[in-house]
Design a protein around this nucleic acid. Structure first.
Lengths: 321, 321
DNA sequence: GGCCTGGTTTGACTTTTGTCGAAGGCCGTG
DNA sequence: CACGGCCTTCGACAAAAGTCAAACCAGGCC
């Protein structure tokens, strides 16, 4: 597609201003337009990712706590969002951090798997725009048509839009009513192709869900709160990409899981960089399960959660020795 | 190494300002410092690459001319710096563009080979700072101790400094007086290791030198202008990483080349991304030679040079058909 | 202890940038 | 061809950011 003249101007203005360091009025006279227009073009350039302003997230990895956690849980990298005193909203803080970390982890040519949830959508919503060309964002699990604005396909699309990337979503329900139908659907070429493509991803972004009545699975009607309670008593510890896992991070053997259309945990584990983001303190056990299952290599959490994880890790190794 | 408190503050200020979008006075009151300090911290943050402002160089690849050149010369990507009307200084323009392109091509964990020359040093000098952690910059060829400020080791070091990367330079002379000594020196473990490490680079940055009396090789006394003229009559077409190549981009069979300590062209060609930058219009033949020898995959040139290259390519294919 | 020295920090000032309503074009439509 | 909607551009004003000399502080040295 040819670049529209307006876009040319935005590029030129951004180039002169940011690369050459001219002032806005100098840019304006170079391009024979008013300074106010330059200001507008520059705003657009920032909004569309033509210019990219990113801040290093080192501060949050360089923490002692973060280092200890990396060692204790043998993760590749951990970022810890502060939660002390005057941080207005810790969960937003975590999302902002996660968005930055995510953008730092994305490389050109990457294929990115994205799951679904409030956290992921919040990150997508906060994330600044970038101009990665040949990036593909794929949806990791089927849809939950629901009164929610953060459906799986929405998460995928929004992130793709922000990155200027190609979005690949598939429109299968997350969960079907019979195992038979799920099996048949998984065998469908379109679906099978999508699911097998997950293993070729370079980067994954997801959170972990809790197994309680507040879970989206319950809210969206995929499970009743009674069923959820039952699964819980049978060892359910968390939800990853729509699937229920036990405390070891293995897929729980249950009818629900067999009725789900989603990427297999094995293909998730095949993704080199798996970024997990957890906002809520209440998701301690689910997170432990996900970590136990080797479902994350990179982790973004709040300070309180980080402390709990470290305490827990310390306690278990102590017991072991 | 522990982060100094001052650096912590820079990080925090940058984070609040750029990631959260607070105003400077809001940042100031959050951190209990004056707004002026915040402004200073932010400048430092930009200068040290803690925040990264980069503008897409798409504008310069999306050119029709650039596309045609990519096809005609079968290069991976070509960037063309405009040279029309009110561009004050085309060669600076090319360097600025090259610096941006270079930064766009660098990925984390890369090993980067850097050659030497006025162009490369100018790029290094203009290039903005970045905070790549595990990047290594290696020197591609021996040193020319000389009254020049852009010696090979300087280029390497400066680029490493800007990227916050590790610089690996080796202190051997570029050219020795006897072939024997050169052979012996190349066999030295330190040198051999460095030279063999070149093949493992992911990215190379160099320009091409002309074979005339203005060449650095002559200016630095490695060759007399008489010798240079003689080599020229024997088919010398350009200089790459200190070595003289013929019109086909092959190493010229001559005593000088045998006395040089530098990366072999074969190991240069083994580098996946080879960014060549040419500023001077006079380097047309040397550039042709380098391209013929497959020594570049990515090219940054001025508009006039681009046009000449395209005309030339058109002429040769016409003749061939 | 007094006294430099180098680097921060500050308040006051200047310059630059963001924004807004109004005016000006451009294009498709009636 | 006039009209209205939509987007761009403009000038002027308000807000924000950059800058600088002076004050300040800590640490090393006499």
């Amino acid at each position: 597609m040819a670049i529209r003249p307006a876009e040319q101007l935005i590029h030129k203005a951004a180039w002169l201003y940011y690369a050459h360091g001219l002032r806005q009025d100098q840019v304006a006279s170079q391009l024979n337009i008013s300074r106010a227009s330059v200001a507008m073009y520059l705003r657009k350039a920032r909004e569309t990712g033509i210019v990219n302003i990113s801040t290093s997230t080192q501060l949050f990895t360089d923490d002692v706590l973060a280092r200890k956690l990396e060692d204790a849980l043998s993760l590749d990298a951990v970022w810890i969002a502060p939660e002390n005193d005057h941080i207005a909203d810790p969960s937003t803080e975590i999302a902002v951090l996660a968005a930055s970390v995510f953008l730092e982890l994305v490389k050109k040519g990457d294929r990115i798997g994205v799951a679904w949830g409030r956290t992921v959508y919040m990150i997508a919503d906060i994330m600044s725009y970038a101009d990665l060309q040949d990036v593909t964002v794929v949806q990791l699990c089927g849809n939950l048509g629901a009164p929610y604005s953060y459906r799986p396909d929405q998460c995928t699309m929004e992130i793709a839009r922000r990155l200027n990337a190609k979005g690949l979503n598939f429109y299968a329900p997350l969960v079907l009513s019979t195992e038979e139908l799920a099996r048949a659907l998984r065998a469908e070429p379109v679906i099978r192709e999508q699911l097998s493509g997950v293993g070729e991803c370079d980067l994954a972004l997801y959170s972990v869900g809790a197994v309680d009545a507040d879970s989206h699975l319950v809210k969206c009607g995929a499970l009743t709160s009674g069923e959820m309670a039952e699964l819980r008593s049978r060892g359910a510890a968390g939800v990853i990409a729509g699937q229920i896992i036990d405390a070891d991070g293995k897929v729980l053997d249950c009818s629900y899981n067999r009725r789900v259309i989603s990427a297999e945990l094995a293909s998730l584990r095949a993704i080199a960089r798996r970024l997990m983001v957890v906002q809520e303190d209440s998701k301690f056990e689910p997170l432990l399960a996900a970590i136990a299952g080797g479902l994350c290599t990179h982790l973004v959490v709040g300070a309180r959660m980080a402390q709990r994880l470290l305490d827990h890790a310390g306690a278990t190794t102590e017991k072991a020795s």
